[in-house]
Write a protein that binds this DNA or RNA. Structure first.
Length: 353
DNA sequence: CGGATTTGACCCGCGC
DNA sequence: GCGCGGGTCAAATCCG
């Protein structure tokens, strides 16, 4: 019996499959999370259906009467093979309808997401360029250190286009343009409070070239360059949050012009594809979004980088999805339900619902 | 021994 | 013009 005709499991929920879904705002995060939740519910539903089907088949093969008249004893009464088959088909048809509805819901959700994203894009383009100009760098940075995270979203993207630089100061020098073009992103990483190292494992290799104690934060700020410099001009600054020492703020400048080292390895098995902790011996990503299931305002700000350059890289996006999945699977209720479904209950003789 | 890290010195932009 | 403070350089040091 070909169940695939009834149970449609062909949903493509990979956020990166259709179009890029930059996870650069809390709203985006919520949408992705919602989609993931739907996905898990959907998968679980499908699994229940298959389990039901399997149960019925088990009865068919195990509870055949010795007389072999073609009837089954199911749920304590005799049911003919024909009736059983009809019931099964009917049930699967019904569930297939539910699947279709879920699919439509997801499609609608995705449309809303896309619409919202375009609105945000429009909105961002209308933000006065002055707010994005590097001349405000010092001020904005200090305000960030005051944890005005709501404004973080405005401190991202291309910091001042070439046009903006000319409007602000016509005397802008050329070397500046390169800096202006560099995209700036900020990532909040929760680490062990006891961990004094300012190491943010993000899949890339970095070379530390400086450390400085800044005025408004007693924690030292570490300066890193991409190991592939000067080919790759990306820099990052890492500093502990002033109010939460367990949170490390990594500020990225520029975009990598190469794949992460873990993806450049020629023999990396396909089984590792998309995995964030790609190479046990190599750089691994340890971004901890553990609170993502119940994000508070500040947590959302932590989860969402203030900018997109690296956060929308396929690897990071994939990792984020995996983190969300991990968060879900860490939920005892979810795992209990899943375990119960997977476990020997499939073979139990007790009636299913 | 070579690459990575540390750390004091230096550079440079900004505000007064 | 000067001082402050963030960012970078580069020699010294560390480490595998």
């Amino acid at each position: 019996m070909d169940t695939s005709s009834w149970v449609d499991t062909s949903l493509d929920l990979n956020p990166s499959s259709d179009r890029p879904l930059p996870l650069d705002t809390p709203v985006h995060q919520y949408f992705v999370l919602e989609m993931l939740l739907c996905y898990f519910l959907f998968s679980y539903l499908n699994f229940l259906i298959l389990r039901k089907l399997f149960n019925l088949l088990s009865y068919m093969f195990q509870k055949k009467e010795p007389s072999g008249n073609g009837n089954l004893i199911v749920f304590g009464k005799k049911i003919s093979m024909k009736e059983e088959s009809d019931a099964l088909v009917e049930e699967l048809n019904r569930v297939n309808e539910e699947n279709k509805k879920l699919t439509e819901m997801l499609a609608a959700m995705r449309e809303s997401y896309n619409a919202l994203q375009s609105q945000l894009t429009n909105l961002m383009s209308k933000i006065p360029e002055k707010e994005l100009s590097p001349s405000k760098k010092r001020k904005s940075e200090s305000s960030n250190n005051n944890h005005n995270n709501n404004n973080d979203n405005y401190n991202f993207g291309i910091i001042g286009n070439s046009e903006s630089s000319s409007t602000d100061e016509d005397s802008c020098k050329k070397p500046k343009e390169e800096i202006i073009k560099a995209k700036v992103s900020r990532v909040y990483v929760r680490t062990e409070a006891s961990d004094t190292s300012l190491v943010v494992k993000d899949g890339y290799q970095w070379r530390k070239y400086g450390q400085k104690v800044t005025r408004d934060n007693p924690s030292p700020r570490a300066y890193f360059k991409c190991s592939f410099a000067p080919t790759c001009p990306v820099k990052k600054k890492v500093q502990r949050s002033i109010d939460d020492q367990s949170v490390v703020i990594a500020t990225y400048e520029g975009e990598h012009k190469h794949l992460p080292p873990s993806q450049m390895e020629p023999t990396s098995g396909s089984s590792h594809r998309g995995s964030a902790s790609l190479n046990p011996s190599g750089p691994t990503m340890t971004l901890d979004f553990g609170k993502i299931t119940k994000p508070s305002g500040s947590d959302v700000a932590r989860i969402c980088s203030s900018s997109q350059p690296k956060m929308d890289s396929p690897q990071v996006r994939q990792y984020l999805v995996e983190q969300m999945a991990t968060s879900l699977t860490k939920d005892p209720k979810f795992t209990t339900a899943l375990a119960a479904a997977i476990s020997g209950r499939m073979f139990q003789q007790s009636p299913v619902e």
